Simulated assay, not measured.
Amino acid sequence: MKQVELDKLDQRILAVLQQDGRISNQQLAEQIGLSPAACWRRVRTLEETGVITGYSAQLAPERIGQGLCVLVNLSLQRHTIDSTAEIEQQVSSYPEVLQCFAVTGNADFVLRVIVPDMASYDRFLNEKIFTLQGIAQVNSNFSLREIKNTQTIPVGSVE
């Protein structure tokens, strides 16, 4: 996918929206130093070009009974396009999997899984992960505490 060129105003818009996606266009325009119409056009262009992919609420997992975070390393028996695609499709369909990365190193995939407790994670492994065809090894790393968790992407040298 082609990289989009961002000027300083676009970078400032993105920085503000990453901190407060619910800010009004009027407030955003005032912070950036643009007219509301010009600000709206820029935000719309950032959305249409795929720079902004959506807006969402950030939740505290432990406050809604989803307090166990597990980083799961999956290693495959074989590396074929079909088997890898099937695993990617299956894993992507599991609501417990918040993130899935194809990686290099000691594993082929790293999953970030959120579940209520250890019994739920045991069920997730037995009913979902262990039923996948082609998995050679599963290693689980349990999060003791969260140090940093952000979706904010640095966008140039924003003042």
Results as ranks from 00 to 15, higher is better:
Ile87Asp: 04
Ile32Phe: 12
Phe142Ser: 00
Glu48Pro: 02
Ala37Tyr: 10
Glu146Asp: 09
Glu88Gly: 03
Ser83Val: 03
Thr80Gly: 12
Pro116Phe: 08
Asn139His: 10
Ile52Trp: 14
Glu146Trp: 00
Asn139Met: 13
Phe109Ala: 03
Glu146Ala: 03
Arg63Trp: 13
Leu68Ser: 03
Gly67Cys: 03
Leu34Lys: 11
Tyr94Phe: 15
Asp122Met: 09
Ser93Ile: 00
Val110Phe: 00
Ile52Asp: 12
Asp108Glu: 13
Ile114Gly: 00
Met118Phe: 12
Thr131Asp: 06
Gly50Cys: 07
Gly67Gln: 12
Ala136Leu: 11
Ala57Asp: 06
Leu17Arg: 04
Gln31Thr: 07
Ser140Lys: 02
Arg12Pro: 00
Asn25Cys: 03
Cys69Ala: 15
Asp108Thr: 04
Gln137Cys: 09
Val115Tyr: 04
Leu14Lys: 04
Val43Ser: 05
Ile32Leu: 03
Glu62His: 11
Asn141Arg: 01
Phe109Glu: 04
Val103Ile: 14
Leu125Arg: 14
Phe130Tyr: 15
Pro36Trp: 08
Phe130Lys: 13
Asn126Lys: 15
Gly21Lys: 06
Gln66Ser: 06
Val43His: 05
Glu86Trp: 05
Ile147Phe: 08
Tyr121Thr: 02
Thr84Arg: 12
Leu71Val: 10
Arg63Phe: 13
Gln77Ser: 06
Ala60Val: 13
Ile87Gln: 03
Glu96Gly: 00
Leu144Glu: 11
Asp10Leu: 04
Phe109Met: 08
Asp20Phe: 04
Glu47Gln: 12
Ile52Lys: 09
Ser93Trp: 00
Ile32Tyr: 09
Ile135Glu: 10
Tyr94Gln: 02
Leu74Gly: 01
Phe101Glu: 11
Val138Tyr: 05
Pro61Tyr: 14
Cys69Tyr: 00
Cys69Arg: 13
Gly156Cys: 05
Phe142Ala: 01
Leu34Ile: 04
Asn106Ala: 14
Asn126Gly: 12
Arg123Ile: 05
Asn106His: 10
Tyr55Ala: 06
Gly54Gln: 06
Ile135Cys: 11
Val91Phe: 01
Gln31Met: 12
Lys128Ala: 02
Leu17Cys: 08
